[in-house]
């Protein structure tokens, strides 16, 4: 693993302190103060990149991509539905991984990332459900159909709701973080099982209607904007996650001297 850490420290040498020979950068990342400072520097660039990529993908997908032979123009909802669903799923894994890092290395910042990731993921899941329902109307003639993918998304929303509810149920930050990290890990083990069983259940009950998304058979002109949108959503997710994490840092570290210095510096300007 040391070659990996060396690679990382070479790649990010610019942002890392000089003495970071091995995994020190990893621990440095765990310092809320360090993270707050650095993320403030990353944010403008990341936001700009997210904005540009999203704008490009949206205009490309909505105005320039050809329409689908079967579904007509309503298929263009794919350019927001699929990236949102994609991020909703990866968001849960990101949350669980952050929780696991917190449990294993007892890193404060990763619990904060985990807490920040939950509402963002839930909102993206809602977006995926909403766009899926709106897409369903012209395609199936109904806003809600118990389609496998939509059902899985709904269950994912419940899983997010559980993690958030547990997070708010405890007064002690430590208990809230650890308990919801464990729940997120249990959920991660379950998500593939849930998705597979819902898929199986769907094939049992419903003959295959029009599948909303069939990415591999998509034409390149349709697929490229989708890819751009997915990248854009990832960048956007990064921006949102950093913003929410920074707030969590401020909330938990408001008594520390570095936050006070920060406020003083702001007031001095």
């Amino acid at each position: 693993m040391s070659w990996l850490s060396k690679l990382f420290s070479k790649l990010f040498a610019k942002w890392l302190p000089n003495e970071s020979s091995s995994w020190q950068w990893f621990y440095r990342l765990g310092s809320p103060k360090w993270f707050y400072r650095r993320s403030g520097q990353w944010l403008p660039w990341l936001s700009l990149a997210a904005l540009l990529v999203l704008a490009t993908g949206l205009v490309w997908g909505l105005a320039f991509a050809p329409e689908d032979a079967k579904q007509g123009n309503s298929f263009r909802i794919i350019y927001i539905h699929v990236p949102a669903a994609f991020l909703a799923q990866s968001g849960y894994f990101i949350m669980a991984i952050a929780g696991a890092i917190g449990l294993i290395w007892k890193m404060k910042i990763s619990y904060m990332v985990m807490k920040a990731a939950a509402p963002i993921g839930a909102v993206l899941t809602f977006v995926a459900l909403f766009t899926g329902a709106v897409w369903g109307k012209p395609t199936w003639g109904a806003y809600w159909v118990w389609d496998a993918r939509i059902t899985s998304m709904l269950i994912l929303l419940f899983l997010y709701a559980g993690v958030m509810a547990l997070q708010y149920a405890y007064h002690s930050i430590d208990a809230a973080s650890k308990a919801s990290a464990i729940l997120a890990l249990v959920g991660t083990v379950n998500i593939p099982i849930i998705n597979k069983s819902v898929d199986w259940w769907y094939t049992l009950h419903q003959p295959a209607t029009i599948k909303l998304t069939s990415a591999p058979s998509m034409h390149m002109d349709m697929f490229m904007p989708l890819l751009v949108m997915i990248v854009g959503f990832y960048l956007f997710y990064g921006v949102a996650l950093i913003l929410h994490t920074r707030n969590e840092i401020l909330r938990r570290e408001r008594k520390t001297s570095w936050v006070r210095e920060l406020v003083n510096a702001k007031a001095g300007l």
């Binding site: 949206l58 909505l62 123009n73 309503s74 909802i77 909403f130 709106v134 897409w135 109307k137 012209p138």
Partner: peptide, 12 residues
């Protein structure tokens, strides 16, 4: 289909 597409885009 514009209603559906633009409504989704707006909400998103």
């Amino acid at each position: 289909h514009g209603v559906y597409v633009w409504a989704s885009v707006a909400v998103t």
